[in-house]
Design a protein around this nucleic acid. Sequence first.
DNA 1: TCTGGGGTCCTAGGACCC
DNA 2: TCTGGGGTCCTAGGACCC
Length: 420
Amino acid sequence: MFALVDCNNFYASCERAFNPGLRDRPIVVLSNNDGCIIARSNEAKALGFKMGEPAYKVKGLIDKHQVAVFSSNYTLYGDMSQRVMNCLAEFSPDIEIYSIDEAFIGLKGFDLYEMEAYCRKIRATVIRNTGIPVSIGIAATKTLAKLANHVAKKEKDCDGVFWINSEEKRKAVLERMPVTEIWGVGRQYARLLEKHKLITSWDFAEAGEEWVRQNMTVVGLRTQKELRGISCLSLEMIEPDKKAICTSRSFGQMQTEAQPIAEAVATFASRCAAKLRKQKSCANVLMVFIHTNAFRKDLPQYARNRVITLPVATNSSMEFVKYAVMAFHSIFQEGYQYKKAGIVVAGIVPEACVQSNCFDEVERSKQAQLMKTLDTINNAIGSEKVKIATEGSGRKWKLRQEKLTPCYTTRWKDIITVNT
DNA sequence: TCTGGGGTCCTAGGACCC
DNA sequence: TCTGGGGTCCTAGGACCC
């Protein structure tokens, strides 16, 4: 049996946890640059706010219902996530952290009778220790646990926990769940299934295997088996190394000059390098991209990228910054209003397996020592306190974050004050 | 005026090898 | 009239996830 623990409206709940005045109020949390709605409290969902909707389009609705609006505060959400996960880890050694707000828990060794009670205890403990409400779905496969979680969230009398513990229950859940709710069925597959009169999850689970294989590849077939109760996906308790790492941002304001964008590109390159060092990897492929605002049909558009292959895989910020800025200048053109830039690194290998090059002139051990020192300092006194000069200090391109809450849990000067 | 930022996996087709 | 049989690697594109 698997349990899927999923935080309810996670970002909105994080904001609410530190501000009791938000209880029962509609809350929306915006994406980076205060662009789209990416999290909603139940009250906001009920008012009709949609996931991914641009905030400016619903400004009227926001004002009308006095909705509490927040810029996303990933420092806060990341730390709250860790607290929730730490709490879950107390309950089972078998835990897969699936995303910032979800974890699968292996329930091996629990007898069937105590399983549901155990999950209710998990739920009560998480909310007591962190202030974050969670829902828990329990079933024989991960895909069914996802659906069970859905039921736990939607149906009030479940009280946050739902267990698919019999064939009858499995059938009942699948029959009333549209295929759009299945983990692994997105927009395109949902359309395809609908076209073939497969409307409910039950219809899909009972469809011909050969047809599923042909139209939805082996991935779809696996999903179908999981819905039938045959477990194909196991608990992934060790996080695999990333195969590609990306750092990109939209700019708070459109940029026309090369210099500020070059500084942004240098900053993103440096962050990619830091992410590589964190997973003890190096990379030898680097891509830089820049583009204008594609939504602005009234402005001339420009988008380009450049891929560079380095002679030796590296995770040195200095090397990445150097190559990234060079690549940027080779694609930058005057006369456009740029909205976004980014860096992708690929060709990732473990630090210990880097293929060296007999013509290499870089002093790698010195660079490594320098990066280690840089990471140590920044971990101790704050991220990016020491950086490469090319990254600049003006930050003309910085994010728009007009509704940012304090970092209650990670910054001393932001710590919460309680009046008694 | 304002529209996010990360990732994964699978398949088909082309280039190449013996 | 006849035209092999077996592979690997890489990339682009399309699906999906949070």
